[in-house]
Design a binder for these strands. Structure first.
Length: 369
DNA sequence: TGCACTAAC
DNA sequence: GCAGGTTAGTGCA
């Protein structure tokens, strides 16, 4: 219910409908087992935290280490000098479909098919329909829902229009984070226009996106990428928000945010943190001693940084919206009906390998082992 | 080096 | 009747 457009949904009703449609399926069985395993891990973490607190010396040492970690981040990593923008298209695949087929305007529809939805129109979201939901379950929530196949060529062309016609004006080094999200560093752009506020720049960018694509987007402006991304969600859809470049403003913005909203913290990690009494960024800072003591240095460091509103400001894309880092892998997978028939399994492997080999041929790459 | 797990879109 | 596909990072053996 924290996703855009889902706030007004009767969650208990929607959950009941989904539960009824799911009960008895292998998928649901597996999901319940996984959820139970995660709950076990969370309570094990909670028990570790209780043991730590029961030992005054260990607790004091953990607290000292956590304080030192926070001080190091504050002393060396907080950067308020850049003006970063995150642009996020509203219900992108569905918006493209609606633009190209006006009969969809104002109706509940979703991009995808019976097996999986990529996104849903805001009209459909009122019924609890959302991305990553199978179409056949969405239809139980909203019988009038229209499933619209994804026109990937139109989606890519629309994305390319922003990448070539809009973003370079504001920042030639912008990065496309996906087909419908981009990061821009508008510090230099603003230096050339001293009269413009960051809020005014967001308005300019959103107007330019609308003119180039015929679609609405939301935008966030802040001193770094994490805060800009969170800010772009605040007034979604078709809205914008700014986090001022002061430590106080940053902490005021980040503190009440649920840790689940931090990119990199998914359902499982949020549940594990919950076992430590952590739900919001403020509570993560409050419980920093157990976080630092019980999680890996990489994980706890990343979470402390996020909860303090500290993150990278460098956008450093190639400006063309292409891939910045070199490719590290290529893979193919396909879901198939359960079977113990060796011939059927071999056929699945064969199909997948043939496709992967073709991909590697196009990439000029080969497997090592 | 390979695998399991987690995460993002 | 029916619950996806691709890429990447982390931690561990």
């Amino acid at each position: 219910s924290h996703k855009a457009g889902l706030a007004g949904v009767d969650a208990s009703w929607a959950n009941r409908v989904i539960e009824e449609a799911s009960r008895g399926s292998r998928f649901y069985q597996a999901a319940q087992q996984k959820a139970a395993a995660v709950a076990d891990r969370a309570s094990a973490l909670a028990a570790s935290a209780a043991r730590l607190r029961a030992s005054p010396t260990a607790a004091a040492a953990a607290a000292a280490r956590a304080d030192a970690a926070v001080e190091a981040i504050e002393a060396g990593e907080r950067d308020l000098t850049r003006r970063i923008v995150h642009v996020d298209m509203d219900a992108f695949f569905s918006a493209v479909a609606e633009r190209d087929d006006p009969s969809l305007v104002g109706t509940p529809h979703a991009a995808g098919g019976m097996h999986m939805l990529s996104t849903a129109s805001y009209e459909a979201r009122k019924f609890g329909v959302r991305s990553a939901m199978p179409g056949f379950i969405a239809l139980k929530l909203c019988p009038a829902l229209k499933l619209v196949p994804i026109d990937m060529a139109a989606v890519k062309a629309t994305s390319a229009r922003m990448a070539t016609g809009v973003f370079p004006t504001f920042d030639p080094t912008f990065t496309m984070a996906s087909l419908d999200e981009a990061y821009l560093d508008v510090t230099d752009y603003m230096a050339r226009r001293p009269h413009l506020s960051l809020d005014a720049v967001l308005t300019e960018i959103r107007s330019a996106v609308a003119a180039a694509t015929g679609l609405t987007c939301s935008a966030g402006g802040a001193p770094n990428k994490l805060l800009a991304k969170l800010a772009s969600d605040v007034n979604k859809p078709n809205g914008q928000a700014v986090v001022p470049a002061s430590r106080d403003a940053v902490l005021a913005f980040i503190s009440p945010q649920p840790v689940r909203k931090v990119p990199g913290i998914g359902k499982v990690t949020a549940a594990l943190l919950g076992g430590l009494g952590v739900t919001t960024c403020a509570s993560l800072i409050a419980r920093r001693a157990v976080v630092v003591a019980l999680l890996s240095p990489r994980s706890s460091g990343a979470y402390l940084r996020a909860a303090l509103g500290v993150s990278a400001s460098a956008v450093d894309g190639d400006g063309a919206g292409g891939r910045v880092a070199p490719r590290k892998g290529a893979s193919r997978e396909s879901t198939f009906a359960p079977t113990a028939d060796a011939g059927a399994l071999a056929a699945v492997l064969d199909r997948v390998c043939v496709k992967l080999a073709a991909d590697l041929g196009r990439l000029g790459a080969a497997g090592r082992t």
